[in-house]
Design a protein around this nucleic acid. Structure first.
Lengths: 137, 137
DNA sequence: CCCTAAAACCGTAATCATTCCTATTTACAA
DNA sequence: TTGTAAATAGGAATGATTACGGTTTTAGGG
C-alpha cells in the first residue's frame, strides 16, 4: 500500500490527518520490511522531539486495525510492515534486517479440507533466515 | 514426546532430575496443547508453594533447547507444548483452549525452490481459529 | 476566517511477561 | 557420607506495551 492510498483510506474512515501520521506512513513505505515500535520512535524523534509512546502505539494499532499495516511477533516484540494489498501471499523474513520477500505458495486450500469441523479465522506462514545481503559467508 | 522419554534425554545430557522437572513434563504431556508460563506456574503452585518464576522459565527454556518443548508466540506471550517427534508437521491452534490438531501439509519443498539465494533457518505455519469443542454456535 | 467538539497528543505512571541476581538448597557421583 | 556443581527461592530489574489526566491540534460548520 502506498502512503497516499493510506491517507485517503484514513480520511474516508473519518480519522484526522496529522504530520506525524503522514510521517509514519512514509517511514513504512520506505522501509519495505518489518519494523518495531522502537525503530519507528527512533526515526520520528529526529523530527518530533518528545513524541510519546502513546502516539506511536495508538497509530500502529490504528493502522493495523484499518488494514494499512501487517503485524507479526518475533522475539517478544511486535513487528510491522506495510500491508501488501495486491494479492494473498506470505513472506520470507530476514532475521537480520527485517526485509521481506514474497512467497506465492499458500497451502490453505488444501488445509481447509482437513479441518472441516474447525472454524478457521486466520493463518500464518512465515519463513525465517538470512537474505542474500545479510549472509556473512 | 513422552515424559519418560524426556527424562531419559535430560539424564543423558547430564541434567539433574527433580520433582519439579518431572511434574512440568507430566503437565505438558497431559495438556496436549499450547500452554503459557502462567498456566504452568498456576498448576505447580498447587504442589510447590512459593515456586519461583526463575524455575519456570529456566526449565521451559531448557526443555525448548533440548527439543522437549515447542514454542510459539501468541498475543505477546510465549506458548509451549510437548514436541511432536514422530514426523514433521504443523498445527491448527485453538484460540480458546490452546489445543492443537496436526496438519500434514507443508509447502517448504516448493518454497525452497523460490528462495535459492536465501539462507533458510526456520519456518512457521500455523492455523488459528476455534476447535469444534470451543465453537459457541 | 473563527469557533467548537472531537481527535490527537504529551508526559508519565502502571502493567505484564520475562530475565537477572545472590544466597541457599539439593541431586548425585565419588 | 560428602563435596560440588546444578537447581531453586525470593525478589529486584528490564523491556515492551498500555493506561490515563491534562493539553493541544484538527476538521468542518457557521
Amino acid at each position: 500500500m502506498k502512503t497516499s492510498e493510506a491517507i485517503e483510506l484514513l480520511k474516508k474512515k473519518g480519522y484526522k490527518t496529522t504530520g506525524k501520521r503522514k510521517d509514519i506512513l512514509t517511514y513504512f513505505e520506505n522501509e519495505d520490511g518489518y519494523r518495531t515500535a522502537k525503530d519507528l520512535i527512533l526515526h520520528l524523534e529526529e523530527t518530533y522531539e518528545g513524541i510519546s509512546f502513546d502516539t506511536i502505539y495508538r497509530n500502529l494499532h490504528l493502522y493495523h486495525d484499518v488494514g494499512i499495516l501487517e503485524v507479526t511477533e518475533l522475539n517478544g516484540e511486535k513487528h510491522f510492515r506495510m500491508n501488501c494489498t495486491h494479492h494473498h501471499h506470505h513472506h520470507f523474513i530476514c532475521k537480520e534486517c527485517g526485509k521481506t520477500k514474497e512467497i506465492e505458495v499458500c497451502p490453505m486450500e488444501e488445509v481447509r479440507k482437513s479441518l472441516s469441523n474447525y472454524e478457521i479465522e486466520d493463518h500464518k506462514f512465515e519463513i525465517y533466515g538470512l537474505c542474500p545481503g545479510c549472509q556473512t559467508v
